[in-house]
């Protein structure tokens, strides 16, 4: 059974996600447009595609920070712990949000309302297939679970409150906070998916896949540096390795 507190927390999370999504919707429309130039090797078009993707990523980071700040318990953490958690979870939450927008019929990710990107589009934006393929495999796997808004929101909350992230000081508080979301998710699934007992462990294993994806992403960031593709300041701040 879900306690009244758990029920209201889940409602709050789903509403917070929708609110953050709404807020960034207008921003998404303002990013550098995806060029319709047919020639994939056109240098300017390639730069525009890279800018398009990085600007969407920046909006996504802002959305994740806004959402985290509305997570019960998050603002109880010190600012340093908030940064330590967000620095590592951001890419994983971004990949969860990407998977949420995966359309299996066209094997594409729909970031903007009417703009979908397949694997080749990701490559045209400057990403390497060593990163693109795992993204699409993960998205396909997540899509098969058919998670609803509440399950995504809880999974994201569990992902953010991971006490084993580098530089986290108050690990026990993070762990206690994570536990409230794990318990809520477990009860929620028992009620909503009564005849699929494996769904809970299956969802937790997605968090493990995200760790692998995160290290593949670090290789992608390193490869971009080798190609002199500069990340914008916010992305560089959280993903680049600063000597």
């Amino acid at each position: 059974k879900l306690t009244p507190e758990q029920l209201s927390m889940i409602k709050k999370l789903v509403a917070a996600q929708q609110q953050c999504n709404q807020r960034s919707f207008t921003d998404r429309l303002k990013v550098t447009p995806w060029p319709q130039v047919p020639d994939p090797n056109n240098r300017e078009a390639r730069q525009q595609r890279f800018a398009h993707f990085t600007e969407l990523a920046i909006i996504s980071v802002q959305e994740i920070v806004d959402f985290a700040k509305q997570l019960p318990g998050f603002l109880e953490l010190t600012r340093e712990d908030q940064i330590a958690l967000l620095k590592t979870s951001t890419i994983e939450v971004m990949l969860l949000e990407t998977s949420r927008r995966y359309n299996p019929e066209i094997e594409s990710i729909t970031f903007l309302k009417d703009l979908s990107y397949n694997r080749d589009d990701f490559a045209k934006a400057g990403l390497q297939f060593e990163f693109i393929n795992p993204i699409f495999e993960f998205s396909k796997g997540m899509n098969e679970l058919q998670l609803n808004d509440a399950e995504y929101a809880l999974l994201i909350a569990i992902n953010i409150f991971s006490a084993d992230r580098p530089n986290v000081q108050d690990q026990s508080l993070v762990e206690r906070l994570q536990h409230t979301y794990v318990e809520a998710l477990h009860s929620y699934i028992c009620i909503n998916r009564p005849n699929d007992r494996l769904m809970f462990p299956r969802m937790l294993m997605k968090l493990v896949s995200l760790r692998t994806l995160s290290s593949v992403h670090s290789e992608q960031v390193f490869a971009l540096r080798l190609q002199d593709k500069k990340l914008p300041p916010l992305l560089s701040e959280i993903w680049d390795v600063h000597e």
Partner: peptide, 16 residues
Amino acid sequence: VKDHQLLRYLLDKDEK
């Protein structure tokens, strides 16, 4: 932890 000025800004933003 490095200073993460931009992330700090996003975290501070609404609370002011």
